[in-house]
Design a protein around this nucleic acid. Structure first.
Lengths: 198, 198
DNA sequence: ACCTGAACACCGTTCAAGT
DNA sequence: ACCTGAACACCGTTCAAGT
């Protein structure tokens, strides 16, 4: 019984059964242990979920140091996306909770470092980081089925056409499908373009 | 006992006690009724939460018809934000669930209508809608304390300076505070600029 | 048609007892 | 130091019974 083993079993449980299905009791059952034993290594359910979120965050690779600024930013964004898509059912833990630990600060350092090194004033660097992060959070939440598509892939083409709303009906074929990858690249380009030069 | 009365009481409960505190039993207690009575008007807890989300969505005002395209888009975005900030603790219900009802489609119509009228091809209109929506979702989640700030307002300036991460420490004064309104306007301008002309 | 309450199968967590 | 299990105060929802 170690914290590590508990967190990994927790992640596996989320992957298999979804976030709603996670309970201390079920996790203990999976580990063949009394539910209360978990509390010796993890500070309650919330801390367990934070710990699982940190596993996802820690999987973001550091970009190659020889890349230029735009390449670095883009590779961090893609690494973030890949880490979330590796565990789509756990991703909302990262996208939805405020993590307090150092692990959560590492990606910030990875973004801010190159921006400052390139000559961005700290205030603008933080501003840019926040705008990009808002977009990433939003698209990934949608991609991972945790955010509204507002008439997105879940809905039937026929329903949209028959909605009685003229613009919705006219755009129905495009509302009914969503190429997440294309949406991601499209939005990321906008954000990185907007970042500009120092 | 009507569905309407139940949903409004549910929203009031969320406003006062937060999402985690909502339970069918507590809501029934607040209404002076047996928990099971609620099931005669609402299809279970999930439907209750969907219904509350729809109350927020319905509060977005229709933009004045004489506005130009950019004005219309901007006013819808601001209306969306205002509706969420009116009920910050309930906002994650809108930002985080996929609503299936017609109410959820009305805002889509409100955005798509002007875009198509201005001559945008449907595919590009949907593309633009999705990018803007991703950004809105992300910023509002953060604003409403449901999304990561990654070293944002929750964290102490001193912690950031002492983190041992050089870029984080250098930008600490800006990471420690977040002007949500300014971030919102900054990002919205980027997205609306990127939308371009038909 | 609507309300009721007992019952079922769950929760997270505290606490006292064990090794 | 770690594990255990009984206990407490909750959940959402089913179902049979009432009016």
């Amino acid at each position: 019984m170690t914290r590590e083993r508990i967190l990994l079993a927790g992640l596996a449980l989320v992957d298999e059964a979804g976030l709603d299905a996670v309970s201390m009791r079920k996790l203990a059952r999976r580990l063949g242990v009394d539910p209360m034993s978990l509390y010796n290594h993890v500070d309650g359910k919330d801390a367990l979920l934070d710990g699982i979120a940190e596993i996802l965050l820690a999987a973001i690779p550091t970009p190659p140091p020889e890349a230029d600024l735009r390449g670095t930013m883009s590779s961090l964004a893609h690494g973030f996306r890949a880490a979330m898509l590796d565990h789509p059912r756990a991703a909302p833990l990262v996208l939805t909770r405020r993590l307090a630990s150092m692990t959560a600060l590492a990606p910030v350092e990875a973004v801010l470092g190159p921006l400052l090194a390139a000559g961005f004033p700290p205030e603008r660097a933080v501003h840019g980081l926040r705008a990009v992060l808002a977009f990433l959070t939003g698209t990934l939440m949608r991609e991972v089925e945790a955010a509204p598509t507002f008439g997105g892939s879940a809905r039937r083409l026929a329903d949209l056409s028959a909605s009685g709303l003229p613009a919705v009906a006219a755009a129905a074929p495009y509302l009914a499908v969503c190429d997440h990858e294309a949406e991601f690249e499209f939005g990321l380009r906008i954000m990185l373009d907007a970042l500009g030069e120092p």
